[in-house]
Design a binder for these strands. Structure first.
Length: 304
DNA sequence: ACGCCTACCTGCTTGC
DNA sequence: TGCAAGCAGGTAGGCG
């Protein structure tokens, strides 16, 4: 479900709704939601009594900063949702974890497909977020006694909406990669927060074919892609995210961005620029939507 | 580095 | 109607 704009929406909602609230206790209905290596029972014991100081986001993960410095991370993956429910709201059969708040409300972690993961981390180290190489090699190791929140994101690429994510920096990163644009935009170690919807939308706006090799872009194309990636993400946030089936904000309401998308899930419908039919292909095992007229096919080259 | 495969899960839609 | 196949906002791990 959630890409950067959806996660940002949830985090802003939670900052408004539950910053300052205290968790009375947590009921875990699906143990595997708790990120390894912490057992579900220990999670429930350790989160009880914690106060939420601030809520924000890194990449596609919601960060709940607790008053004692610890951080709870919520990776929503495909169908995860964090919803604040007022007293008396009927129970949710898909709630995998229910946080009962001291004020009588509930913070519910709902997740139909059970892919999402929640972690609890000691304080400190969140600063050390860099555009490191090797997302996989620097994973937090299981069984390790002291691991820190910063390590969770050590392999992530730059945040596309920050000032430091300049077109020049983007160009430099693109120039060193020969992978397809679509694949790279989805690679969280290359750039943080872009998912299947916004990758397709950014490529359409930039008039770039999803199969183009990154190191073949000219400077104007790079500037276009840099601009459109940021544009589609910002607009997604303004519209509170794109909802198809599962995504809702923390207020339980769907976002309004889905109806504004130009290509995503618009297979066979007319391109808003040229009227030709939007095509669907599969790239890196993901559905990819584009206009075959506006986004020209990369020329197959047999040069060495 | 790159790309492909399988897993993890459940529900909805499509086609015969 | 029933039933199977295909699809879904993501990512981790394995192989070549």
């Amino acid at each position: 479900m959630p890409e950067l704009p959806e996660v940002e929406t949830v985090a802003r909602d939670l900052q408004r709704l539950v910053a300052g609230a205290t968790i009375r206790d947590a009921t875990v209905h699906w143990d595997r939601t708790i990120r390894h290596p912490m057992p579900a029972e220990r999670f429930a014991a350790e989160i009880a009594g914690a106060s939420i100081r601030r809520v924000d986001r890194r990449a596609k993960t919601v960060l709940l900063h607790l008053a004692d410095g610890r951080v709870m991370t919520v990776a929503l993956r495909m169908t995860g949702a964090l919803i604040v429910a007022d007293p008396g709201t009927p129970p949710d059969p898909y709630a995998r974890i229910v946080f009962a708040l001291e004020d009588g409300r509930e913070l519910r972690y709902r997740d139909v497909r059970k892919f999402g993961r929640i972690g609890l981390w000691p304080g400190g180290g969140l600063r050390s977020v860099g555009a490191g190489r090797g997302a996989r090699s620097r994973r937090v190791e299981e069984g390790q006694r002291r691991y820190r929140i910063g390590e969770v994101f050590s392999g992530h690429g730059p945040e596309p909406l920050t000032r430091s994510f300049t077109s020049a920096r983007f160009a430099e990163r693109l120039s060193r990669r020969s992978a397809k644009l679509k694949t790279l935009l989805l690679d969280q170690s290359f750039i943080s927060g872009v998912g299947n919807i916004y990758a397709d939308e950014a490529l359409w706006r930039a008039r770039l074919h999803p199969l183009r090799a990154a190191d073949t872009l000219d400077p104007a194309e790079i500037r276009r892609l840099h601009r459109t990636v940021r544009q589609v993400l910002r607009e997604g946030i303004v519209n509170r995210g794109s909802s198809f089936s599962d995504y809702v904000g923390a207020d339980g309401e769907p976002g309004a961005n889905a109806e504004r998308l130009a290509v995503y899930r618009r297979t066979d419908q007319p391109c808003y620029r040229c009227g030709r039919r939007i095509q669907r292909i599969v790239v890196g095992q993901r559905s990819t939507h584009f206009c075959p007229h506006c986004q020209r096919e990369p020329v197959a080259s047999d040069e060495p």
